[in-house]
Every structure is written in C-alpha cells, then in structure tokens.
Amino acid sequence: MKIVVCIKQVPDTNEVRLDPKTGTLIRDGVPSIINPDDKAGLEAALRLKDQYGAHVTVITMGPPQAKVALQEAYAMGADRVILLTDRVFAGADTLATSTTIAAALKKIDFDLVITGRQAIDGDTAQVGPQIAEHLALPQISYVSAFEHHGDHAVVKRSFEDGFQKIKVAYPCLITALAELNEARYMSIKGLIDAHRTLEIETWGFAEIDAPVEKMGLKGSPTKVKKSFTKGAKSAGKVMEGTPKELAIAIVDKLQEKFII
C-alpha cells in the first residue's frame, strides 16, 4: 500500500497575537507547525505503515523553510518527503495550489491520498477536495475514523449533527479531521536523521507537468476585494429585574439611542 500525505506548514495560531494598534497578525516569533488536521492525516498513514507496512510519502508546497515541516514528518516516521517550491508557485489560491499539488501527485504512485480537512491559517477546506477533482479520485471529506480492509477502506465522515459510514475502494482521497487520532511524537533517532542524513527532494516548476498560467498568482482566480479588522464592540450590559421592569428598561434604552 502506498500513501501520499499532503501537509501544510502554518503559524501556530494558539501563539499568534494581534497588534493592538494595526489589528494585524504579529507573525514574528510565532512558531510554525504542521497543520493539526494534516498531522492527524499523517498519523493515520503512519498507523497503516505500522500495521500493514504501508509506504508513506509526505508532500508540501511552500517556501524553502517549509522543509522543517517535512523534517518533522520524517522524524515521526514518513519514508519519503517532497518539497514543492518555486517562485512560480507563489501567491497561489486554493485552485492554483491544488493544481500544482495534483500535478506533482501524477508523478507519484499511490493507493491513497490523505490531506487535512482545512488549514488553521486559511480555513477554506478546499484544497483536498480540489486535488481529488483534478485527479478524478473518489473523495471523502471530514474523516474521523478509518479502517483498512485489503482493497478498500471503511471510513466515518463526521458532521456537526451526525455521521456517515462509507465504504470506498482505492485509490481515493480522504480529508482528515484533527480528532481522527492523536499524533505521535517524533523519535529521537528520526529527528537526528532528519537533520543529518535526510535529503529532502525538492521539486520546482520544471519537475511537474502543469501549465504555468494555472499556477501561482496567475492561476489564482480568487481576488480579495477588501479586508478589514472587525471593530471592538463595547461590553454588553446585563440587567436584572422582573420581565415588566426589564421590558420598560429596554424600551427606554432603545428610545434613548433613537432606535425606536
């Protein structure tokens, strides 16, 4: 069994603070982590490796420093890691990203592709499903449980108010929820090897087969019309009293503010 896991390096949003003056993210000194949903996907793949001897390839698209995420994946137990990096890929929206990753996946032999549901810095949940569409793969999103059965898998697709249990034949693509499992730690030996002997395969535009106009900023139809920081609202006021008193107080307040 051959598995490819797509991961993204993201700022640890638990550690991100806002600049109170400008309302923008302070990224300095914020550690980068493997996106939590993606890490659960990686763990799922590594469990299939432990149980069934699966071969696990991890791929990420990003700037050169994204190699740290791949070193971590390798230290956790991945067999092969690939960094997709090129100036041509920069500025990509979800469509251009999925186009690029799908083009890379065409060069890799796999039975199963795992992505995270969504990244904590973008929250779109689009890249996984788009990759599946580019590659014409059956896709199951929001996976919270996964069982391997020879030539197919039985997975649990979770929603806020319920779930579906789906049988799917390989090859297919799933998008993992962080709650799928608890990811393992890096091993000390793996961590050392990731720094001393691992050679990260780096693929640029020349290594994949996709039209240049479909990649990076050029290939990104998404346009950000406007971005703004939501203004801070004043704290609400809790009033106490009988329903009659409160109704009068509310009407008074609304009149005071010329709302009614």
């Binding site: 740290v68 070193q71 890096m186 000390i188 961590l191 050392i192 990731a194 720094h195 001393r196």
Partner: peptide, 10 residues
C-alpha cells in the same frame, strides 16, 4: 543547531 532546537521543542 536546528536539530538541537527541534529536539528541545520535542
């Protein structure tokens, strides 16, 4: 080194 730092985080 980067190796030391990653280990320390671990």
């Amino acid at each position: 080194t980067n190796e030391d730092l990653m280990m320390r985080e671990l």
